[in-house]
Simulated scan of single mutants.
Amino acid sequence: ISAMDEKGGFIDAHRTFALIFRYLVEERGMRGAVVTSFNLTDMARDMCEDYGLPQIVVPIGFKHHCEQILKRGDVLIAAEESGSIAIRGHIPERDGVLCSLLLTEIAASSDKPMSSLVGSLFERYGPRFYRRRDIHVPERLEVVERLKEDPPERFGGRSVESVETLDGVKLRFARGWLLFRASGTEPILRLYCEMEREGDVFELLGEAERFAREGN
């Protein structure tokens, strides 16, 4: 699920998740574990730390979220980058209708417009801008494997602070991350990026595509 604000601005899945998560905790008083996909916003991590709730990061694909929901029994919310969200007290599966109703409730119960509600998240946890780019690269598996075997110390003019390989290869920078992930069913390399400035997102995605196509 995703949404639009009163100005016609797009509210992506990451911000939609954050709005619903905050509402469940702060307005409904609900608590529990939070299951997030490897490519979901870092705002999830910051919010879990803020609320003192455990976060479980899983590979991409909602089946991994469902496994945690059924296994743990204490999951408050589970979400992934594609907009899939599951909420405790309902079915252990994503449900866009329920989330749409919750977003409507959030909008109706607040005296602030949706753009301000999103803005308040940025004020509290810092700005987050995200984009995904899918590119046709027959050697997609080799690209990811090369990054795993020899991760760069710098990428796109930025120092790589750490490297994570739960599902693909995620390069972490001081203020964001870039993820390379190969499709298992088609010759597509998926590039995901989140940074504090929107311009940096497009810059890094361009560098990532060049790296994947040119091999250096």
Rank of each mutant, 00 (worst) to 15 (best):
V160I: 02
G96F: 15
E67F: 07
S115K: 08
K63W: 09
S183M: 05
M4H: 09
L191A: 09
E26V: 14
F62H: 01
S183R: 04
A107W: 14
I1A: 08
R181P: 01
D12F: 11
G206E: 12
I1F: 15
K148F: 08
F211N: 04
D111L: 10
G96N: 12
A174K: 14
E194R: 07
R210H: 10
A18S: 15
Y125V: 00
D74I: 09
Q68S: 05
G9N: 15
L141I: 08
G73N: 12
G184S: 07
L191I: 13
S2V: 02
A182E: 08
E49R: 13
R154S: 14
R213G: 07
G61W: 01
S115F: 14
V201I: 13
D134I: 03
D111M: 05
M43Y: 02
P127C: 07
G199D: 14
L147I: 02
Q68A: 11
G157M: 04
L178S: 02
F62G: 01
F180W: 08
D95W: 15
G29D: 09
K71N: 11
R94I: 04
A3S: 07
Y51I: 08
F21G: 00
Y192P: 00
R72W: 02
I106V: 15
R146P: 08
K170P: 06
L121R: 00
S159I: 12
D134G: 12
R131I: 03
L178M: 06
E203T: 07
Y51L: 05
P152T: 09
S110Y: 14
R31H: 14
H136F: 13
L40Y: 00
V118S: 01
D167Y: 12
P127M: 05
S109H: 09
D95F: 15
D42A: 03
S120G: 06
E26A: 14
C99G: 03
A182K: 08
Q68R: 12
A18V: 03
L40S: 01
A78W: 01
T185H: 09
L166H: 06
A86G: 13
S84M: 10
A13T: 13
P152K: 09
E49F: 05
E203H: 09
A86H: 03
V144H: 00
G32M: 05
